[in-house]
């Protein structure tokens, strides 16, 4: 039951972000979308979009670097919260129940995926992930709709991308190993402060691990892969003993814990 409420909340957060984005654009307070949002004169660029474009360095302004620094700092503190609550593909994670993977090796797969994607982008001189990026496609479809130039083919293309990612590649593989957006956030957040913690009430029943869409073994407090966690709160909702809860921990104490 808890999970279905979480699903509704998540649907609302995704819809609210899109609605905010449309409202900001229509009112002129902010322009752009997920790929680059310009608030006043402050551009907040997608860090992955920035990394895929080596030539952008030649045109970089202070404002873009400050915006990038703020974005990176937020990611470093909160980890993959974007994946869990804003990304339209991440929404699909809600429907997965038991561990399709063993929850290990996610960080390694992420590193390989991110590195290979960036290297190919730099060699081709073209941001290849932006072509497939489901978040960017949603952003572009909304931008087209706002200007009244949306065509049916673009929507079909967006549906194709979503279908390939969710049905062919499978969501848990995508979100737990392939998606460079998730990879960048995971790799940037070894010191994140938002973590799911198990209290002494934990009975090691593994219900949390079976409910985790990425198959993370949350009950093993010391070994859990915090960097991969999207803070989807499914484990918290499903724990029969109310032993799990999200907690803010200082980066220093958590490193101590890991060591």
């Amino acid at each position: 039951m808890g999970s279905s409420r979480l699903l509704k909340i998540n649907l609302l957060t995704v819809a609210a972000v899109i609605a905010t984005y449309v409202a900001l654009n229509l009112s002129g307070v902010a322009l752009g979308g997920y790929c680059l949002l310009s608030l006043g004169n402050m551009p907040f660029i997608c860090p992955l979009g920035f990394l895929q474009r080596p030539s952008i360095v030649e045109a970089t302004t202070h404002a873009i670097l400050i915006g990038l620094a703020i974005t990176l700092a937020l990611i470093a503190l909160h980890g993959r919260i974007f994946c869990g609550w804003i990304c339209p593909i991440g929404l699909g994670l809600r429907f997965l129940k038991h561990d399709k993977g063993n929850g290990r090796g996610i960080i390694l797969a992420f590193s390989i995926s991110l590195a290979s994607m960036l290297i190919v982008s730099w060699i081709l001189g073209f941001p290849i992930f932006c072509l497939i990026c489901p978040v960017g496609i949603v952003s572009r479809i909304i931008a087209s709709a706002l200007t009244g130039s949306l065509d049916l083919w673009s929507i079909l293309w967006g549906i194709t991308i979503f279908a390939v990612i969710t049905l062919v590649l499978r969501i848990h593989n995508w979100c737990g190993g392939v998606c460079p957006l998730g990879a960048l956030q995971a790799l940037l957040s070894p010191l994140k402060i938002l973590r799911i913690k198990a209290s002494s009430r934990c009975t090691r029943c593994r219900i949390c691990a079976r409910n985790c869409p990425l198959g993370l073994e949350i009950h093993k407090d010391r070994e859990v892969d915090h960097m991969s966690c999207t803070a989807c709160m499914k484990c918290v909702a499903e724990c029969p003993f109310k032993a799990l809860k999200p907690a803010l921990s200082s980066p220093l104490s958590s490193t101590r814990l890991r060591n």
Partner: peptide, 17 residues
């Protein structure tokens, strides 16, 4: 549930379209 998710997605896309 995945089927429902895809349906949901398709429905939203069709509405926008």
């Amino acid at each position: 549930s995945r089927r429902r998710f895809v349906k949901l997605l398709g429905g939203a896309a069709a509405a926008i379209g």
